[in-house]
């Protein structure tokens, strides 16, 4: 026990370091949150004292030139639909792959390919999708975007759901089979209620990934289906960077993630930990 005491000072110093790092993480967010309420001139002169204004938000949402509100809607539609589809497909597939008789080469092959695909840079596939989708007139459509987001997030969904499914004891669906459940009934009445937490965790994470996606949205959308990350990037790309609107847009786009952290911190951590390749 003596060593704890002798290292107490050192321990204090390292702890201080951690809290400093936490501050370094927080600071940029506070700073951008402040910038969102500043006028352009206050940002450019980086004045610390300023009168908060809502002009950035007003311009962002109500201005005729700004499509931000529309983009927000697009982001929501695409993220929610693709999340729902990913969770449903991956829950059903991992149930079948893990708990029913499937040839080994098939289940191992599917999992291995999904994992490998997850590690490959998305841009390589986006380039192929772009030409394929052009032929099929799927560019700049919700279906195209949803399809792309489902594809890119499916491996993570599969991985997470299969991890959560492994926690359901085998006995339970054997009991269900004996009780007369069809496969579908076993899945919907026994398995789904039991992996509910896991599904929420998966959905939270997939939603965040889909909401955050930039690579796909940049290349497969135009004005009509453009999502928030693309419009934030557009502010930064314009000749005269609209810092205030960029900050306000950034702040708004972080809201879903912030809400999820506040209300579902447990689920996100669970998902992140389970999703990291073990």
């Amino acid at each position: 026990m003596s060593h704890t005491r002798s290292n107490h000072g050192f321990y204090r110093v390292t702890q201080l370091f951690v809290w400093c790092y936490a501050l370094i993480i927080l600071f940029p967010f506070l700073w951008i949150a402040m910038a969102a309420f500043k006028r352009q001139i206050d940002i450019l002169t980086s004045s610390f004292f300023f009168t908060p204004v809502l002009s950035n938000f007003e311009e962002l949402i109500f201005s005729k030139q700004s499509s931000f509100f529309h983009d927000l809607l697009n982001s929501g539609i695409i993220a929610i639909s693709s999340t729902a589809i990913v969770v449903l497909i991956s829950a059903m597939a991992s149930f079948t792959l893990l708990r029913m008789y499937v040839p080994r080469w098939l289940s191992v092959g599917l999992f291995a390919w999904a994992m490998l695909f997850h590690m490959l840079p998305p841009i390589t596939f986006v380039s192929a999708w772009f030409t394929i989708f052009s032929e099929l007139n799927l560019i700049n459509t919700y279906s195209g975007m949803i399809l792309a987001h489902v594809t890119i997030n499916l491996p993570m969904g599969l991985w997470l759901m299969s991890n959560f499914l492994k926690e359901v004891p085998r006995d339970l669906y054997e009991a269900a089979a004996i009780d007369g459940c069809s496969n579908a009934a076993t899945f919907f009445r026994i398995v789904l209620p039991l992996i509910r937490t896991g599904m929420i965790a998966t959905a939270a994470l997939i939603f965040i990934f889909s909401w955050s996606d930039f690579t796909i949205a940049l290349n497969l959308t135009a004005k009509a289906t453009q999502t928030v990350p693309v419009s934030i990037a557009t502010f930064a790309q314009e000749f005269e960077i609209k810092y205030g609107q960029m900050a306000a847009g950034s702040l708004l786009s972080t809201l879903p993630a912030l809400l999820l952290i506040v209300f579902g911190q447990r689920y996100i951590v669970k998902g992140l930990l389970s999703g990291s390749v073990k």
Partner: peptide, 19 residues
Amino acid sequence: HARDRDIAMVFQSYALYPH
């Protein structure tokens, strides 16, 4: 299929549906 055999089984773990 097990579901059509009209048998009942008591499992070692009881396999009660927790929900």
